[in-house]
């Protein structure tokens, strides 16, 4: 990209040089473009180090729940009038999914993962993770997958959706799925928490994808609970991420065959 930017200025200068070659003789002017190299993201790619083998005899787990305290924000309702199909599915508008909170403050759609403490390589699962577009929403709204694992994106609606990822470390993609049954397989190759997905055609649609180097991540359900299984004993830092309320970290220790308990509480910001 950098080289081409320099290249593409050169011919323009050459035009000028040629325009200027008054009475014979011309000069090959050379153009120079400079641009800082390297994109954001730093060192991406698969982790190095030895292949990890988890000893089932010693491994423990991390589990817990995420709560929200305070008055829940009002949910925004978007008109879907511009798209007949979506309008038919949601005649009174589509609710935004940015904060799904249970009656007792259970916070769903929180991405919980081990941020620090895991090293080494883990075998990749061969089955893909699926992101569906159904009823003019992304399903699930928040999901996690391993970097390098296949992400299967499927359109289950009788309308056109456009899948547009907005990553910082990974490669951006932006493509349309024009009809029901369209499928695409993508890979995200660098650890990134989180990558936002949106649909350019339907402004209310969004999904968040956590891309992690190892298998220790989970998304809270409607009950606000999560569990990370098969964790080798050791000290870790666990992060909980919510699209609206931000991130929180907690350090903890997993004992041999122990179940470490964790709870996160998000507040109105």
């Amino acid at each position: 990209m950098i080289r081409v930017s320099a290249l593409s200025t050169a011919p323009l200068l050459l035009v000028l040089a040629l325009l200027g070659s008054g009475c014979g003789g011309s000069d090959g002017a050379s153009g120079g473009g400079n641009k800082p190299a390297g994109g954001p993201g730093g060192d991406a790619g698969q982790p190095t180090g030895p292949d990890m083998k988890i000893d089932a005899g010693t491994a423990g787990s991390i589990s817990g729940a995420v709560k929200f305290e305070g008055t829940p924000p009002t949910e925004r309702v978007n008109s879907a009038e511009a798209d007949a199909y979506c309008h038919g599915k949601h005649p009174d508008g589509i609710k935004s999914e940015s904060s799904v909170i249970g009656a007792g403050g259970e916070l769903a759609n929180v991405f919980v993962w081990i941020k620090k403490g895991i090293t080494g390589k883990f075998p990749l699962p061969s089955e893909p993770v699926t992101l569906r577009q159904t009823g003019c929403r992304y399903e699930p709204h928040v999901l996690g997958l391993r970097n390098g694992q296949e992400l299967l994106i499927r359109n289950e609606d009788e309308t056109m959706h456009n899948v547009h990822s907005l990553p910082k470390a990974n490669e951006e993609f932006n493509f349309a799925q024009t009809k029901k049954g369209d499928e695409a397989k993508k890979k995200l190759s660098a650890q990134e928490v989180m990558v936002k997905f949106k649909c350019d055609a339907h402004g209310w649609m969004s999904a968040w994808v956590g891309v992690v180097n190892h298998p220790y991540f989970a998304v809270t359900g409607a009950d606000g609970k999560f569990e990370l299984k098969n964790v080798p004993p050791g000290e870790y830092e666990v992060e909980a991420w919510h699209e609206k309320f931000g991130k929180q970290q907690q350090a903890l220790k997993v004992e041999t065959k122990g179940d470490a308990k964790l709870s996160f509480t998000f507040k109105e910001n």
Partner: peptide, 11 residues
């Protein structure tokens, strides 16, 4: 305005 030009609808 981009690939989605054709379905940039409204009423």
């Amino acid at each position: 305005c981009g690939p989605g030009h054709y379905r940039m609808r409204g009423f």
